[in-house]
Amino acid sequence: MKKIAIFVDVQNIYYTSKEAYGRQFDYKRLWQQLGYEGEIVIANAYAIARNDNGQIKFQDALRHIGFEVKLKPFIQRADGSAKGDWDVGITIDIMECASSVDTIVLLSGDGDFSLLLDKVRQKYHVETQVFGVPSLTAKALIDATTIFHEINHSLLR
């Protein structure tokens, strides 16, 4: 059975799904869909901890589905901008597991991950899959993955 590792850039998926469709991504449906392809051996969701009740319930729901939720503190800068980027953490986790899985699934539209996907495909010969909102996913990321899955109404709630 194929071993699958899932990595979710939660903020990216939340905001792109909301902007494009005005709806939320359905993580339970994703889990079911990927479960038909093989065994999910790693499932990490990377989020920012703002500690509001809605976010805590959402994170608990992700855990209930089977995700490990990794949190970083929300940092508000003096100029009003915010920081909460998980790119390096996601990259490290993908690199650490790439030799022990058959498929790496990334949920993000961030083109910065294109180099990472190229590297793991070349070095570890793994299949890569990206789920992203088509109009808000970097072309470089779409080009770097083995399979691009459009987030559309079938994966929304």
Rank of each mutant, 00 (worst) to 15 (best):
N12K: 14
L141A: 07
G84Y: 10
D118F: 09
M1H: 15
E150H: 13
S108R: 10
Q76V: 06
V126F: 02
V105K: 02
Y15R: 10
S100G: 11
V126P: 09
A98M: 09
R77M: 14
G89V: 02
N152D: 15
D87G: 09
L136A: 09
L106R: 03
G38C: 03
D112W: 04
L62A: 01
Q59W: 13
Q33K: 14
D87V: 09
A138Y: 05
D85N: 15
V88R: 06
V126D: 05
A20L: 13
E39S: 11
S17V: 05
V120H: 07
W86V: 00
T16Q: 08
W31Y: 11
A43G: 13
D9H: 11
I75H: 08
S81T: 15
M95F: 04
L30D: 03
R121A: 04
I65H: 02
F25C: 01
L71H: 13
L155Y: 15
F58E: 14
E150I: 02
Q122T: 15
G66V: 00
I142C: 04
I4Q: 02
F148K: 02
H149C: 14
F131L: 06
V105N: 00
V88D: 03
A82D: 08
F113M: 07
Y21R: 03
M1A: 13
R50D: 10
